[in-house]
């Protein structure tokens, strides 16, 4: 099953490589990984999207907790949570495609943030599946370039992760 794991870790040089190294060394799957400092500059927050059986996910969270730099680990998928990813897509927007691209972007609540006579760059946020749905809805030959940030996640309501 797909899991979204959030972690807080000391904002130290090499912290990211410890997490990435753990996943590759133990053969765990990483679908995406995002990391950035938090409001407390000594802490980084990471969101990892991974897949695995319950046993594997249990080991992943235990192994992450075992890293000395890791302060907190939470499997967001265990409760209510919100997940968002940002995607930038550059599409062909000439002739017959131009109107169609604008319409598709609107339907998916995207924003066109850069325009030339031949291209649009569309910004889209949403769950991973929404972004996938958008790409699926486009003809593959109109897509010129895709950049995705990977998912970030946060608990819903009172579900808070902090030190």
């Amino acid at each position: 099953m797909r899991h979204i794991i959030s972690l807080l870790m000391e904002n130290e040089a090499g912290a990211l490589s410890r997490v990435a190294g753990l996943f590759s060394a133990r053969g765990y799957n990483i679908e995406s990984l995002t990391v950035a400092p938090t409001e407390d500059p000594t802490l980084s927050r990471m969101t990892i999207v991974t897949r695995g059986s319950d046993d594997v996910i249990e080991q992943i969270t235990k192994q992450l907790n075992k890293l000395i730099d890791v302060v907190k680990v939470q499997d967001l998928t265990e409760g209510d949570h919100i997940e968002r990813e940002l995607m930038l897509v550059k599409v062909r927007a000439s002739g017959e495609h131009r109107e169609e691209m604008k319409r598709m972007s609107d339907i998916f609540r995207g924003r066109i943030i850069d325009v030339t006579d031949k291209t649009y760059t569309i910004e889209l946020t949403g769950t991973v599946s929404k972004l996938n749905a958008f790409l699926d809805a486009l003809d593959s030959d109109v897509i010129l370039e895709v950049v995705r940030t990977g998912a970030s996640g946060i608990g819903r309501g009172e579900r808070i992760m902090r030190v």
Partner: peptide, 8 residues
């Protein structure tokens, strides 16, 4: 003492 040794 190491939780990751348990149920591995």
């Amino acid at each position: 003492v190491d939780p990751s040794s348990i149920s591995k």
